[in-house]
Amino acid sequence: MSAPVRFPRFFLTNPAPCPYLPGRTERKVFTELNGEHADELNDALGRIGFRRSQNVAYRPSCADCRACVSVRVIANEFEPGATQRKLLRRNEDLQVSACRPWSTSEQYDLLRRYLNARHPDGGMNDMDDMDYADMVEQTPVNSYVIEYREPGVDGLPGKLVGACLTDQQSDGLSMIYSFFDPDLEDRKGLGNYIILDHIMRARKAGLPYVYLGYWVEGSARMQYKVRYRPLERLGPEGWEKFEPGGA
């Protein structure tokens, strides 16, 4: 006999400095994901703008700000532009594999290089190998680490150049966190390639969406997300297509 379905309990975090807009504070509402219905709960919460971190689902709940907007790519309507097609060709030799959510020292070393180069002052920069293992392995839902490797030699795996912790939901792929080698001059745009690959993977699997998390108008760090169209955002009336200006 299956366990009874329990309604989740929601909690609020204390105010903290906003990581996207200087001078503002953020609060989040969150709930635990656990038990045999964790996947279903994660799916339902994802459709109303929640994101997953380990065994917690959260979304912004700021009293005086609505800048964080959930966005998702419509995978089966996406057509890559000329620059994106060039990026796909440049990296078509990469060997891509979906691995079980188990952390490795190779992944962690790549993450450290990425954080030191791209986000030296970010909130994740003090993450040690145990923190990384928790991020990857503490998942109550259907998750993978998608690895991107250069071609192998003599039967040995090639160099790991990118990775993404990804949830497979009932209606799409949710990109939890991606990182890549920041020093490869001949592979510029790896972060964008990882998104493109997820769109193609979702389409092949018959999944309609790729969830990209939050887009924050006015935050330069978030503008890359609007390159993948058609894009939908979550508004008061539900999900709707939109065309952000100036992208």
Results as ranks from 00 to 15, higher is better:
Arg47Cys: 03
Glu79Asp: 12
Ile74Lys: 07
Glu79Thr: 15
Gln54Glu: 15
Cys62Gly: 05
Glu40Val: 07
Ile74Trp: 02
Arg59Ser: 06
Ala67Gln: 05
Thr83Gly: 14
Arg66Lys: 10
Gly81Trp: 11
Ser61Arg: 07
Pro80Lys: 12
Ala75Ser: 15
Gly46Ser: 13
Ala57Val: 11
Ala82Glu: 05
Glu40Arg: 08
Arg51Gln: 09
Arg66Pro: 00
Ala82Gln: 08
Arg72Pro: 08
Glu77Trp: 05
Gly46His: 04
Val56His: 01
Arg66Leu: 09
Gln54Trp: 03
Gly49Glu: 13
Ile74Pro: 00
Ala67Met: 04
Thr83Lys: 15
Cys68Val: 05
Ala44Ile: 08
Gly81Ser: 10
Leu41Thr: 09
Ala44Met: 14
Arg59Lys: 14
His37Gln: 12
Glu79Pro: 00
Cys65Asp: 15
Arg52Leu: 02
Asn42Tyr: 09
Asp39Pro: 15
Gly49Thr: 14
Arg51Leu: 01
Cys68Pro: 02
Ala57Met: 15
Ala44Ser: 13
Ser53Asp: 02
Ala57Ser: 11
Ser61His: 13
Ala38His: 02
Val69Thr: 14
Gly46Glu: 02
Ala82Leu: 08
Ser70Met: 07
Val56Ser: 01
Pro60Cys: 12
Pro80Phe: 12
Gly46Met: 04
Arg52Phe: 01
Glu77Leu: 14
Asn76Thr: 07
Asp43Ser: 04
Ala67Trp: 05
Gly46Val: 04
Asn76Ile: 00
Arg52Glu: 02
